[in-house]
């Protein structure tokens, strides 16, 4: 069921109708819609960027890291710990240190030596590379186990350990049967506004995304 009206970008809607004192039986369009822009930037590719995408992008855009003043490692550790213990981010203990390492490479007064090798990497989006290709479901399965399973679960039902802790919960991927390849690839590339689904286009290239797509097709009954 597609509610086309939900997608209308109503920039002036709220002022247009709201103060005509809505009353019973009033059949004007009563709904005010807020369509927010997608995240403008991703985490820069580098060791641990997939962790930042998986954990940090659940609740906030990557600008939260890049607009901070350069923090020491200790500060980043405190911040990540606060996200885990105070704000309930389900970061596993083994990922904590790797995530802090990554944040130090991104924005720190004393970047680790490896930071010098972390550069803006746009290779993932090669111009002219077809977005839809034939993927290998076996390779997709490997990628799925690395990037997706913690939220979407091994069977794709959205029942991964993190997925159940999200509002809304992670999507049930076994229900994607009616979605076009293009729609699924778009979601994989750009993420989904209003949910914890991050954009993967800077972590996975077009071929890898198509591997994932072909694996996702095996989940549909």
């Amino acid at each position: 069921m597609i509610h086309v009206w939900m997608f209308l970008l109503l920039l002036v809607g709220a002022t247009g109708f709201a103060w005509g004192l809505p009353s019973d039986g009033d059949d004007r369009e009563p709904t005010s819609i807020l369509t927010l822009p997608a995240d403008p930037i991703s985490y820069q590719p580098g060791p641990g960027s997939d962790l930042a995408s998986r954990y940090c992008l659940m609740c906030h855009s990557a600008e939260y890291v890049y607009t901070q003043p350069p923090h020491s490692r200790e500060h980043w550790m405190e911040i990540v710990n606060k996200m885990k213990t105070t704000f309930g981010c389900p970061i596993s203990n083994e990922d904590m240190a790797l995530l802090v390492d990554y944040l130090v490479t991104q924005n720190s007064l004393q970047p680790s030596p490896s930071a010098q090798h972390v550069q803006r990497d746009d290779r993932k989006e090669t111009p002219g590379q077809p977005l839809t290709q034939s993927g290998d479901p076996q390779k997709g399965k490997t990628l799925y186990a690395r990037h997706c399973v913690t939220c979407h679960g091994s069977g794709g039902k959205g029942d991964g350990p993190i997925g159940q802790a999200l509002i809304p919960p992670a999507a049930n991927l076994t229900l994607l049967g009616k979605q076009s390849d293009q729609t699924i690839l778009d979601t994989l590339r750009n993420g989904r506004t209003g949910t914890a689904m991050p954009a993967w286009k800077n972590d996975l290239n077009a071929l890898e995304l198509n591997h994932l797509l072909s694996f996702l097709r095996t989940l549909t009954p």
Binding site: I2, H3, M6, F7, L9, T35, L36, P37, A38, P40, P168, A171, T183, D186, T187, N190, G191, R192, T193, G194, T195
Partner: peptide
């Protein structure tokens, strides 16, 4: 939220 997958795409191209 389930319907929002394609919502942001128009703006994404600008951003």
């Amino acid at each position: 939220h389930l319907l929002k997958g394609s919502l942001a795409l128009g703006l994404a191209s600008l951003l």
